[in-house]
Amino acid sequence: MSPTPFPPTAAQLRALPHFAPDPALWPRIAARAQRRQARRTAAAACCMLLLAGAVGTLLQTPRGTTPLPDWQARSAALERELAAAAPRGPAPGPLADALVGVDRALHAAYVRGAPPAERAALWQARSELLESLVEAQRSGLRATRI
């Protein structure tokens, strides 16, 4: 089967000239990609540290207590504080990225029915991240460094 011919207009459009982008564009893209990667790595490290800290604290919590609602409520309160301090959302940076990571982990934990202790650890990590973000926002600092 022969290929469908282009309409005649296309033949004229094929005469369009070809240009090249600025030769300095790729180095800028590569540098930006590397900065993004470094930020993600920092956020993941931050996330892991917070989770480890939260799990450690929970292991020391006496049995029979139910810390889950407290951390969840604390997280909600901090969320409101952050919204008041930064109506357009938190400044991008490792803390904001780590928050996204914890939110994903929380979602996954609920989807697979993770035990309350694990969810509590995540809610605690989320609260601590939100505290840092609120603090950074109030002090007028961009949370770009850990």
């Binding site: 070809h18 090249a20 982008p21 564009l25 590569a30 990609a33």
Partner: peptide, 18 residues
């Protein structure tokens, strides 16, 4: 591999730009 990405850029940057 950033070298591989640089090569993909070399092949396709102009078509995307145009």
């Amino acid at each position: 591999d950033m070298q591989a990405h640089a090569e993909l850029y070399r092949r396709f940057a102009a078509p995307v730009f145009n």
